[in-house]
């Protein structure tokens, strides 16, 4: 498929790409810091991944192989739509295979397969500010980041422990990057947080509506906030995938009837399919 001649390669004009590229480089140089950028209006709605799309569009070249996932799956409607958008405006190759992709754009998950040095993962971010529920004012949170004053978040976690006996944040679990910046990992389940720590791949985060880009360079420390006596734990549903039998993957719960029947399947469709394929091979 060749790129739509009605638009510039990868949709954005070159000045916009240059501005975004500069922001990405600064984001990498200051791991976890939210860099403001002149986000543009995209032909997809805010909330559908416009930040991730702008980051991806500024990275993409003709040799790239793009994978797009939403909720871990390549076939969710929004993933399909974004993949189609890039096929149309950049004419690039796409894949559903995690290991074949050079760029993975994601909403809400990190693939189960370990990402490698040749890869970049681009997260779609709705709210880049990790403290927005505690302090909605940008002028305040900006000051807190400047001073590395994250007391409000520690208090919130402490209150959680006091009330519930554990930290009750299930997703978008705040992390400390390179020991300096408190960062939102985007609404991935806390289960995925440990994958971010010292990941060999470059991690980029784009928030289109809030107009922020941030990054975690490869092999950078990403620590989920916790307390010595209440260490961070990555939870998943108890059970195995009904399709591939995986006992280590993050699971989606599927309601099968209205009498309490349910089953669990891998949220990462590529991981699940690979495991199913290798089981069939082994059986043959």
């Amino acid at each position: 498929m060749t790129a739509d001649p009605g638009y510039n390669f990868a949709y954005l004009d070159e000045n916009t790409k240059r501005m975004i590229r500069r922001a990405i480089l600064k984001a990498i140089a200051i791991p976890g810091h939210q860099v403001p950028f002149g986000g543009r209006e995209m032909p997809l709605p805010y909330g559908w991944g416009t930040g991730g799309i702008q980051v991806t569009a500024s990275l993409l070249g003709p040799d790239d192989v793009l994978k797009v996932i939403d909720q871990g799956a390549d076939d969710t409607t929004n993933a399909v739509s974004i993949r189609h958008f890039f096929r149309r405006v950049a004419g690039i190759a796409v894949t559903t295979r995690t290991r074949e992709a050079s760029i993975i754009q994601t909403r809400h998950r990190i693939p189960e397969a370990k990402l490698t040095e040749g890869q970049i993962i681009v997260y779609q971010v709705p709210m880049p500010e990790p403290m927005f529920r505690l302090e909605p004012r940008l002028t305040e949170t900006r000051r807190m980041h400047g001073l590395a004053d994250y007391g409000v978040m520690h208090v919130k976690l402490y209150e959680d422990v006091a009330c519930h006996g554990e930290i009750s944040i299930a997703y978008n679990y705040p992390v400390m990057v390179h020991g300096r910046y408190l960062m939102s990992p985007s609404p991935i389940p806390a289960f995925d947080n440990p994958k971010m720590d010292r990941m060999p791949a470059l991690q980029l985060f784009g928030a289109g509506r809030e107009k922020r880009i941030y990054a975690v360079p490869p092999y950078t420390s990403v620590r989920s906030l916790d307390f010595e006596d209440h260490p961070f734990r990555a939870h998943r549903a108890k059970g195995c995938c009904a399709l591939c039998g995986a006992g280590d993957s993050y699971l989606d719960e599927v309601v099968t009837d209205d009498r309490g029947g349910r089953m669990f399947v891998c949220s990462d469709t590529d991981y699940c399919e690979e495991r199913q394929a290798s089981r069939t091979e082994n059986a043959a």
């Binding site: 790409k17 480089l25 990498i28 990275l59 070249g61 040095e117 470059l202 360079p217």
Partner: peptide, 19 residues
């Protein structure tokens, strides 16, 4: 090629800054 050469050059700089 202003579009694709810039892109290739950026990816090299991105890689350099990341590693």
């Amino acid at each position: 090629d202003p579009v694709l050469d810039t892109q290739a050059s950026f990816r090299a700089i991105l890689e350099a800054m990341s590693r």
